[in-house]
C-alpha cells in the first residue's frame, strides 16, 4: 500500500515504471537546442491537417503511437490514457484519442498536465487497478494564440515577460513491470494565487505554485535539494525561474545548480526571439519524455523531481478583472 507523508506527499509502494517516452515538436522547437532528442519534427504548422486544432490532435496522436511503438506494447495492452491540453474542452486530446480503442480520462492542469497525468496514473497503477497507462499532453502555438491572445496575423508586439507556447506533444508509457526509471513519489500541488493579473507574465503567476509544491515536497520527505540530481520545473521561463529562486531563498532553500526549467532549455532564448522561453503543456511533456528520459537511460540522472507548472488562466475571468491561479504537481523519478 502507498502511504502518505506529511500533508501532501504520497510514497508509492509498487513504483510504476516508465517503459518509454516520445516527443514530437514543431519547426521552431526543432530548431532549438534539444532538436536531436525529439522523435520527430513537424515542419508544417498545419501538420497536414486543415486547422490548427486538428494539427495539435494529430501531433498528440502520433506521439502516443510513437511512445507505444518504443515500449513494445500495443494499444490493447493499455488500460488507460490520461491526457490533456490547453484548449477549451481539452479539444486536442479528445479528438486525438477518439479513434483509439482505449479508455480515456481527460485532464486539465494547463501547462502542468504532464506531471498531473503522471501523478494520477502512477497512483492508479500503484493501487493495482490498471497495469499499463499512457500519459500524454500537447500544445500548439497557433491554437493557443487564437484562444488566449490575438489572431496570428495581428500586428502586436510581444511583451518581454511573455513566453512562447510550444508546438509539440509528449507521451509516456507507464507500467506495473518492465525496464526503466520508476516513479517513487508524488506531491500533488495546491492552487496558489499570488495576485498576478498580467496574462503576459505567466512565469510570475506560476512560480509561487512551484515554490509551494517544491517546499512541501522537501518538508514532507525530509530531504534537501542536495538529494536530487535535478529539480525540473515545467515552463516557468527565465523570469519565473528567477522568481522561484527568490521565493525559495526566502525560505532558506537554495536550488544551487540543481534546477532546470523546460521552458528555458527547449529554446535558445537569445537567438529564437521567445522572450522568457517556452510554455504550454507540450513544453514540459516533450522535454521530459525525450531529453530527460534519455539522460536517465544514459545514467546521467538518477533522481529527478519533475514539477510541471500551470497557469490556470481563464481569458473570461481575466477580462472580468480576476487574477491568475497557478498550480504545480511534483513526481519523483528514480533510476
Amino acid at each position: 500500500m502507498a502511504k502518505r507523508l506529511g500533508n501532501q506527499t504520497i510514497i508509492l509502494d509498487k513504483q510504476p515504471i516508465i517503459l518509454s517516452g516520445a516527443g514530437i515538436v514543431g519547426k521552431k522547437e526543432g530548431d532549438g537546442p534539444l532538436a536531436r532528442y525529439f522523435d520527430d519534427v513537424v515542419d508544417d504548422e498545419y501538420a497536414g491537417e486543415k486547422t490548427f486544432e486538428a494539427a495539435e490532435s494529430r501531433i498528440l496522436r502520433d506521439t502516443f503511437i510513437k511512445a507505444l511503438e518504443k515500449s513494445g506494447k500495443s494499444s490493447t495492452d493499455i488500460n488507460l490514457i490520461l491526457s490533456g491540453d490547453l484548449l477549451n474542452q481539452c479539444t486536442a486530446a479528445s479528438y486525438a484519442f477518439r479513434d483509439v480503442d482505449t479508455p480515456y480520462l481527460g485532464l486539465f492542469g494547463a501547462c502542468s498536465t504532464m506531471s498531473e497525468s503522471l501523478a494520477v496514473a502512477s497512483m492508479i497503477i500503484d493501487g493495482g487497478s490498471v497495469d499499463y497507462a499512457v500519459c500524454a499532453a500537447s500544445s500548439h502555438f497557433c491554437s493557443a494564440e487564437r484562444q488566449f491572445r490575438y489572431p496570428l496575423e495581428f500586428g502586436a508586439q510581444r511583451t518581454p515577460t511573455s513566453q512562447w507556447t510550444v508546438t509539440g506533444a509528449g507521451a509516456i508509457v507507464l507500467g506495473k513491470d518492465g525496464q526503466g526509471p520508476k516513479i517513487t513519489c508524488v506531491t500533488p500541488g495546491k492552487i496558489i494565487d499570488e495576485g498576478i493579473k498580467d496574462s503576459n507574465n505567466m512565469g510570475a503567476a506560476m512560480s509561487p505554485a512551484a515554490f509551494d509544491t517544491i517546499r512541501s515536497h522537501l518538508i514532507d520527505t525530509g530531504r534537501s535539494v542536495d538529494d536530487y540530481d535535478l529539480i525540473l520545473t515545467g515552463d516557468l521561463g527565465s523570469f519565473g525561474s528567477t522568481m522561484l529562486r527568490d521565493l525559495l531563498s526566502k525560505s532558506n532553500i537554495d536550488l544551487k545548480n540543481k534546477h532546470k526549467d523546460c521552458g528555458t532549455i527547449i529554446f535558445d532564448l537569445e537567438k529564437q526571439g521567445v522572450d522568457c522561453g517556452g510554455s504550454g503543456c507540450g513544453c514540459s511533456a516533450a522535454v521530459f519524455s525525450t531529453y530527460i528520459l534519455d539522460q536517465f537511460m544514459q545514467g546521467i540522472l538518477k533522481r529527478v523531481l519533475f514539477v510541471a507548472t500551470g497557469a490556470l488562466l481563464s481569458p473570461t475571468r481575466i477580462q472580468q478583472g480576476e487574477t491568475i491561479p497557478g498550480i504545480a504537481h511534483a513526481v519523483l523519478i528514480e533510476a
Partner: peptide, 23 residues
Amino acid sequence: MKKQISKHEYQKMVDKKAPGSHI
C-alpha cells in the same frame, strides 16, 4: 502552513525584477 509573503509583497517583487520593455 503559514504564508511566506503577502500578495502585495509578491507583486512588488515581480515588478522590481521583471524585465522591462526596451523603451
